[in-house]
Simulated scan of single mutants.
Amino acid sequence: MRISKIRYYYPIGLFVAFFLDGSLSEKFAGSFFTNTMSIESRLFLLWIVMGVFFAKVEHPYFWAFTIGLMFDLFYTGVIGPFFMLIPLILYLTKMMYSFFTPSFIVVLLIYLIDIALLTLLFYWINVLIGFTSLSLTNFISGTLGPTLAYNLAAFVILYLPIKSLMEGSSR
């Protein structure tokens, strides 16, 4: 019995994407975060979505909980939001996956839905616990829109390399 390489590549790639999100946000902080907008890099979510579509990942929920906990510890300071949201997004992605045949457009649309849902749910959690008083209109125009645009560009650039890596290492 042959062990597929994705068993090792998936968690390594997930953690690289996670740390790359933070590194890009710090490196380009002047461009990503201004008075009128903020861009949230979600490359780790791209990795999770691509894993659902193009790899046979062992224990995907374990990795989703782990990356959610790490996100909470490193970036939010509040344990819980991403710890619960990332596995929920994974579950919804798997549900949507069952209805579609993977293609560039299908994966792109599901990825954008996932980002919009994750960002919106995190905003609502922050409103509920009093961490933000930003109006929904300002949130959509200042955070959600730029975040979707940035992650759309990242998806277009990274789709083929990640797809090739995942398909090649899942065999």
Rank of each mutant, 00 (worst) to 15 (best):
G77V: 15
I125V: 11
W63K: 02
Y97F: 15
L45D: 05
S38D: 03
G51H: 13
I79N: 01
L136Q: 04
L92C: 11
P102E: 03
G30P: 04
V52F: 12
G80I: 09
F122C: 01
V106A: 03
F28L: 14
E58A: 14
T34H: 04
L121C: 06
L121Q: 00
S23A: 15
I89V: 12
V52S: 06
I110M: 09
I86C: 06
L117E: 03
V57I: 15
I89Q: 02
R42P: 08
F74C: 11
T34F: 10
L43N: 03
I129A: 01
G68I: 10
L121K: 00
T132F: 12
L43E: 06
K27E: 11
V52Y: 11
D114T: 09
I110G: 06
P102C: 08
S41N: 09
M96H: 03
R42C: 14
R42Q: 12
T34M: 04
Y97L: 07
M95G: 09
F44M: 13
L117D: 02
Y91V: 04
L109D: 04
V78T: 12
F33D: 04
F100P: 00
G77I: 13
A116T: 05
M96E: 08
K56Y: 14
S135R: 07
G30A: 07
S41P: 08
F122Q: 00
P102L: 06
K27N: 07
